[in-house]
């Protein structure tokens, strides 16, 4: 088996309550994400799955433990370096699309390239166009988010996550706001696009049907992984 590209090593996290006490959210969670695999994180509301995703995405810092990205501990580096790591190696897809309202689809997809350094404008344009075409919206680059349907907006968000060709895409309920048929097609686009590029995917979901299309599923309950990571054989379900 290849080396994990992203790992959670004995992660703990908590929140401080108004009365000054702390509430544990994650208790010693360890998880490996390997190149090209797709992993579902399932659990009840409040179980800690979104917190785990934000730690894996370097959006927050653990109380203890490590987040290893490409073999180095990324949980302790400074803000600028974390921003660089997120930009270069991680892609995000959010439940509510989270497109920038005043930017058109093309500019939204271009954002990660603009925050990255050293990508010439012509190359940026080409990569944006490629990403839009990969999600089937090559002709909608000029449209503002308000002129796009929910499914189209989420596909734009997927194109934005893919455009930097990250090592891992982290998605939080990416189909949660979509109807069944649109969710199906959006998930297909996400999985196809990621697998075409060899990109690993971690999806937080409540939906067993979504989890069923991924390589493996981990369950989290009360801040702990309750089932050992189990690798699915098939990677052709998408």
């Amino acid at each position: 088996m290849s080396e994990p590209i992203l790992s959670a090593v004995d992660l703990t996290a908590s929140v401080r309550l108004p009365d000054g006490s702390t509430l544990p959210i994650l208790r010693g969670v360890s998880l490996d994400i390997h190149p090209g695999e797709s992993v579902a994180i399932m659990g009840r509301s409040g179980s800690g799955k979104t917190t785990l995703l934000s730690l894996l995405g370097l959006l927050s810092r653990p109380d203890s433990g490590q987040v290893m990205l490409l073999g180095r501990d990324a949980s302790r580096v400074g803000d600028r370096e974390r921003a660089g790591l997120r930009n270069a190696h991680l892609g995000f897809v959010f439940q509510s699309y989270s497109l920038v309202r005043h930017l058109n689809a093309r500019a939204n997809v271009e954002l990660p390239l603009r925050y990255g350094s050293g990508v010439p404008r012509a190359v940026r344009r080409q990569r944006v166009q490629d990403a839009l075409e990969a999600v089937g919206l090559g002709e909608r680059g000029s449209a503002k988010p308000r002129h796009l349907s929910g499914g189209e907006q989420q596909r734009i968000a997927i194109a934005r996550a893919l455009v930097r060709e990250p090592s891992v895409i982290l998605a939080d309920e990416p189909t949660g706001a979509l109807d069944t048929s649109t969710a199906e097609s959006v998930l297909t686009v996400l999985l196809h696009s990621a697998r075409d590029r060899g990109t690993a995917i971690v999806i937080v979901t409540h939906d067993p049907a979504v989890a069923a299309r991924l390589d493996r599923t981990v369950h989290i309950d009360g801040g702990e992984l309750v089932a050992a990571p189990r690798r699915r054989a098939s990677r052709s379900r998408a």
């Binding site: 995405g57 997120r86 930009n87 995000f92 989270s98 954002l111 925050y115």
Partner: peptide, 16 residues
């Protein structure tokens, strides 16, 4: 606020 945190998630630094 949501737009700004999304920008940070995509690679913008705190200083940026």
């Amino acid at each position: 606020s949501r737009e700004l945190v999304v920008r940070r998630a995509l690679g913008a630094t705190r200083g940026g």
